[in-house]
Design a binder for these strands. Structure first.
Length: 342
RNA sequence: GGAGAGGUUCCCGAGUGGUCAAAGGGAACAGACUGUAAAUCUGUCGGCGGACGCCUUCGUAGGUUCAAAUCCUACCCUCUCCA
């Protein structure tokens, strides 16, 4: 799922997302959209899809991640989180009920419980306490949800890198019978082996008939490793953010397109790729655009990276259907983790 | 022709006797980025060698001094104003 925090996948138009990237669903963020333009505005517009002219599924994150990333600007209590807006410093209170109300207004197809995403590292005691609060919030959110038939509310499994806490979290959420389960609090700085260990562990606990969504992950290699561990959905800013800043992902590894080594490389970023950028433009040109901070450079790089991510997921699906996933992942991961050097 | 200002490391621009290989910014180069406070941030940025040091550098050529990018002399070149 490409990330469109404030109602736009940065540098992309809905047409590009649909036709070039082939995105099926994109994200928005409750905290950001609540601040600007305001969820009531979006509700008046007829919901986020209508407002943004994106006629495919959408998911909103609850703002739980902002509890962590805006750590200097918020205070957590059992009742909720008091935020100071990063835009103007004004104070705002987020409770599970309030977050549900906002997400009901925004109107995405899939919405998230309000949670606390603990930072890494954090003590096990802290994570355990945080987890209890997050579980309580999940129940309160479920209770407050006004449109359960139109919007699927996912519970978020927390618990850091501790299997016992993860188990407790997952089992408590499963009792509440959510239509899908998110896994939060990973890819926040822990070793990737710890991340894989946790997803692998949860693979044996979470129900197979419900979607599992690993929040905020990750690199192409992360995706393949976690698909092996039963993950069905991902979102990450990495393909879009990194592309804007001059590095894109390809089937041959990470390509730092802004590098001087491509000044006179007039071949496509990936000759096998059939995205709009690779079909029409050279490395040298895209490098030039990025170095000049031209908007087109960000667009082309973003189109390619997102296209690649979505294509990689298609390949993974096919490999699963063909019952060849293990070999597929084994072959792909080392290449995906490399940096293209020519 | 007259009066004035100035030439600093790729560029802009501080520095007016030692603490100066020379502030700061830009460019360049390398890299980071994982539920987006991100078109952001970090590092390197005269040469050679481990550190430490040595060598070369502040328009050019001389000079003063223990010591000069900084002071003196001449020259070259830019810019502004006046005629």
């Amino acid at each position: 799922m490409p990330v469109g925090t404030v109602g736009s996948v940065k540098a992309m138009s809905p047409d590009e997302l649909r036709d070039d990237v082939k995105a099926q669903i994109i994200l928005g963020n409750t905290y950001h959209l609540y601040l600007r333009p305001g969820h009531k505005v979006i509700e008046k517009a007829g919901g986020l899809q209508k407002f943004t002219n994106w006629n495919k599924p959408m998911l909103t994150d609850s703002g739980g991640f902002q509890v962590m990333s805006l750590s200097g600007l918020r205070k957590i209590t059992r009742d909720g989180v008091r935020f100071q807006s990063h835009l103007d410093g004004s104070y705002h209170m987020f409770t599970p009920e309030r977050v549900m109300e906002i997400q009901n207004s925004i109107g995405a197809d899939i919405i998230m419980s309000f949670d606390e995403c603990p930072p890494y590292p954090a003590s096990k005691e802290y994570i355990a306490k945080s987890l209890d609060v997050t579980l309580e919030w999940a129940e309160r959110g479920l209770e407050a949800h006004k449109r359960p038939n139109e919007q699927a509310l996912f519970g978020i499994v927390q618990g850091g890198v501790h299997t016992d806490l993860r188990q407790k979290s997952a089992e408590a959420l499963m009792k509440l019978d959510f239509p899908g389960y998110s896994i939060g609090g990973l890819a926040v700085g822990e070793k990737k082996e710890d991340m894989y260990r946790i997803t692998s562990f949860l693979n044996n606990i979470l129900p197979t008939e419900k979607p599992r969504y690993l929040m905020g992950v990750g690199t192409p290699a992360n995706l393949l490793e976690n698909i092996r561990n039963g993950i069905d959905m991902f979102d990450c800013v990495m393909p879009t953010r990194n592309a804007r800043k001059g590095s894109v992902f390809t089937r041959n590894g990470k390509l730092i397109i802004k590098s001087a080594r491509y000044i006179e490389d007039f071949t496509p970023m990936d000759p096998e790729c059939d995205c709009y950028a690779c079909r029409n433009f050279s490395k040298a040109y895209i490098r030039h655009l990025i170095k000049m901070k031209e908007i087109l450079g960000m667009r082309l790089a973003t189109i390619h990276s997102l296209h690649f991510y979505l294509e990689l997921m298609g390949m993974a699906r096919q490999a699963i259907f063909d019952d060849k996933y293990e070999q597929f992942a084994k072959d792909m991961v080392p290449v995906l983790e490399s940096i293209v050097d020519h």
